[in-house]
Design a protein around this nucleic acid. Sequence first.
DNA 1: GCGAAGAGGCATAGGCGTAT
DNA 2: ATACGCCTATGCCTCTTCGC
Length: 304
Amino acid sequence: MSLKRSKRHRSTKSTLRLPDLDHSKNSVLQSLGSAASKRTYGYAIEDFISWYCSEPRLAFGRTVVLRYRYELESRRLAPATINLRLAAVRRLAYEASDNGLLNPDLAAGIRRVKGAKRLGMKLGNWLTVDQGRRLLAVPSSGSTKDKRDHAILSLLLGCGLRRAELTGLKMSDFQQRDEHWAIVNLFGKGGHIRTVPVPGWAMEVLDEWLRAAQIDEGVIFRRVSRTGSVWGQKISEKLVWWVVRERAKLAGIESWLRTIFGEPVLVFAMQREASWSRSSFSWGIDQSRQRSATWGAVSVSSLP
DNA sequence: GCGAAGAGGCATAGGCGTAT
DNA sequence: ATACGCCTATGCCTCTTCGC
């Protein structure tokens, strides 16, 4: 037994081969909670593996990861992307080390590789109150699909929902509290739970869709066929994007489309527009203020 | 065949915990 | 207080599938 253990200890390597890397990659992906993370990390690790295997076989350590960082920089990727790729490679190293496939000293060296500097912060592309109104005012043909799309826009704008939150909404998530409607116990990004008031005007638009689609239980937003029949179990997040895009085109604000739509900060920006000033609206670079501001969003109920 | 919607792929921003 | 790392999300294409 002791012989076996010492053999295993001696077998920790500095140069990993494809099966070792694949095994470690699977361990990393299994440990991630979100499907989006699995997809993104999977892509990042695949990219690193194909680069690593195309290079002359060097020890999988700090130097190799630094070289990979230079490679990413030479591709002119954004710092956010480079840091994401490096985070995935660090995780790959921890897993390889934990599985006895990589020398722990080499893994520790990889951990010390710094990420790319993020210089400043983009100001984003916020929807103004006027643009929000124009989006909601897009003329409707009265079709079932139009009613659904209008309801989607109304909940996104009125409640500051993310796309993923919207697609999973069920009838049972809506409850009446003190004569007001609210989406209760909404599971948001990172598994956080919140309760969101629903403005009266948004509730009316939603009711129109529910009546047209004859939905009285289960998931709220479903697919609509060309002939107007409602089918399927739910819609995808991609569809929400397409709905927003089509409506933005019709509203004549397509140029706004590179957007942070779906993040609560968008609604906050709309709420604050009336008192906009450069000095008072500095939370884009002030982290603590940004955090405290993030959920003041729901009083946009006066939007239409 | 056509339109609605999903899947896949890659890039990048948001947001939270923690180290400094 | 803030910079950084990590995970989770969106943005925006193209290509494919599905229902009618």
